[in-house]
Amino acid sequence: MFFCKLFKYLLFLFIIKPFIYLGLGVNVSGINNLPKIDKGASIIVANHNSHIDTLLLMSLFSCSQILKIHPVAAADYFCNTKFKQFVFTKLLGIIPISRKVQKATKEEIFKDINEKLREGETIIIYPEGTRGENNELNKFKSGIAHIAKMNPDIPVIPCYINGPDKILPKGAFLWVPFIADVYVAEPIYYNNTPTKEFTEQIRKVVENLKNEHKKKEEL
């Protein structure tokens, strides 16, 4: 376990962070809204266009904080072989989740996520459920609202990421360097609304961030 953490730490310090900051470049707005990872758990929510998204979001934090961040990822994509399962869950700390609808209770589906949140660790989740194309914001799945409902005192931080759809779009093999933009909104808490409405509420915030970016581009 210790060596896995050391590996993750060194990987981000010497390879991923230099790649993100010097190879690509990031502009962050709303940096003060970023959660304090050391002070407790939080749920980071973002739009999803590329594998770069996760590296980008994690690189916004310091290397010791990154150890406490766990991206939630599709089990059928990241854990379909024994080797991939080892690399992604043990070395990079992702939480695999099944994308198929099962006849299980919500507690069972979100067991791993709830466990991490209760331990005070942060998760990154993409409610679109898969990588989108052409930088469009798809419909959000309601899983995020269920997680928030089960953990009402943990803040949800909606983010909008622009750029990774150009850097490494779905299906592309080589990446092309561009500077990415990350917009971070103020944290929101679960407010006893129905889960569908809460999901829509989060989507609205991400959409507003997207419009904010578009306005900047059209100036």
Binding site: L24, G25, N134, G163, K166, P169, L174, V176, P177, F178
Partner: peptide, 21 residues
């Protein structure tokens, strides 16, 4: 990289830009 990031480029230009690099 800065230049290509602040000028609008079409999605089909990705590979062209890779050649430019």
């Amino acid at each position: 990289k800065e230049f290509f990031s602040f000028t609008p480029t079409r999605t089909t230009d990705r590979k062209v830009i890779l050649w430019a690099y």
